[in-house]
Simulated scan of single mutants.
Amino acid sequence: MRAYLFEHLEFVRTQTLNLVRDVPDDIAEMIPSGMNNHVKWNMGHVLFTMERFAFGVNGETMNLPGHYTELFQSGSKPREIRASWPSMHELLRLLEGQVHRIEHRYRAHLHDTVLSPYTTSKGLKLTRVEEFLGFCLYHEGMHFDKMKSILSQNIQKFDI
């Protein structure tokens, strides 16, 4: 039987993908006034954080290009980064397969303690795989809302 956590991760990821699937690259790199990031940063940050929380905290290789750390780690800001941004196609492709890779790896190991426990910026201590992945639901939901706000300010043609 499939753990409900993977069903929830897949549900949330599907909502994210549906929101951004048809956003063109130029719109995805627009930063509205009063905001620090654009849609691509939010997409990449969700991808990077889940990869880090699923694999990085266990000392495993993250399945991401090396420069994604600079682009998408917490605190990075597109206005301060001079590197080129990955295409929407690349970000979508990586986001689409991530939950299935994580489920394949951790299906029977959700209760395992990770090698590197972590305390979030709000003080929540994460020590087991299921805690890290559960936090990713909250995290992706926050960034989903940010992307919705950015898109609603950047374009009118998207039904948000």
Score class of each variant (00 low, 15 high):
Gly97Thr: 01
His89Ala: 15
Tyr106Leu: 00
Leu95Tyr: 15
His109Val: 00
Pro86Ser: 07
Gln73Tyr: 07
Leu94Tyr: 05
Pro86Glu: 09
Ala108Gly: 08
Gly75Lys: 10
Arg107Tyr: 08
Ala83Cys: 04
Glu96Asn: 10
Arg79Leu: 11
Gln73Met: 14
Tyr68Leu: 00
Trp85Tyr: 04
Trp85Thr: 12
Gly75Ile: 12
Pro86Ala: 07
Glu80Thr: 11
Arg93Ile: 05
Thr69Gly: 03
Met62Gly: 06
Arg105Trp: 02
His89Ser: 13
Pro86Tyr: 00
Glu70Phe: 01
Tyr68Asn: 05
Glu90Ala: 08
Glu70Tyr: 02
Arg79His: 10
Gln73Pro: 06
Pro86Gln: 01
Tyr68Trp: 10
Leu92Ile: 15
Ala83Leu: 14
Glu96Phe: 09
Leu91Glu: 00
Glu103Trp: 01
His67Cys: 13
Ser87Trp: 03
Arg93Thr: 10
Glu90Pro: 05
Arg82Phe: 08
Gly97Ser: 09
Met62His: 04
Arg107Leu: 14
Asn63Trp: 02
Ile102Thr: 15
Pro65Leu: 10
Leu92Thr: 15
Leu91Asp: 09
His89Thr: 14
His109Asn: 08
Gln98Asp: 00
Ile81Phe: 06
Leu71Asp: 02
Arg93Gly: 05
Gly66Phe: 03
Ala108Ser: 13
Thr69Cys: 05
Phe72Val: 06
Arg107Thr: 14
Glu70Arg: 13
Arg79Lys: 12
Gly97Val: 09
Glu70Ile: 13
Ser74Tyr: 06
Ala83Pro: 04
Glu90Leu: 12
Gln98Tyr: 01
Ser84Trp: 07
His104Met: 08
Glu103Ser: 01
Leu71Cys: 07
Ile102Lys: 05
Val99Thr: 14
Glu70Thr: 11
Glu80Gly: 09
His89Ile: 15
Ile81Cys: 04
Glu103Asp: 04
His89Asn: 12
Ile102Ala: 09
Ile81Gly: 05
Val99Asp: 04
His67Val: 11
Leu64Pro: 11
His104Asp: 12
His109Arg: 12
Arg82Asn: 13
Thr69Ala: 03
Leu92Trp: 12
Ile102Asp: 11
